[in-house]
Amino acid sequence: MLITCPYCGPRDVIEFTYQGDGNRERPQPASQNLDAWNAYVYDRLNPAGDHNEIWQHSGGCRAHLRVVRNTLTHEISSVAFARGDHKVAARHKAEGKT
């Protein structure tokens, strides 16, 4: 499986670490709503199809990425920095090819 890191370009999955379900919403730090915390820490979607995931390019630029991956085909339909404020021109886009 390849993941196209917006900074590094397409890299083998061995360079990445799965960092969990991208649908999770972390309660406010001071929240005492245990149900919300429980849902955040333990509840996971298990869709047969597109799944929002967080991956870290731990063997590369170390950026965290939001990845939409099809759990049936491994097809990755989108990859973006988890941080919205990385404005760096991505190489694979700058060169106009993958």
């Binding site: 590369g60 950026a63 990385h86 760096v88 021109a89």
Partner: peptide, 22 residues
Amino acid sequence: PDGAGAGSTDGVRSVFGFAPGK
């Protein structure tokens, strides 16, 4: 140069990007 992973060297000093903003 602009772009991810871009860099340059003059043989004495070298610089290159290795991560967003780094």
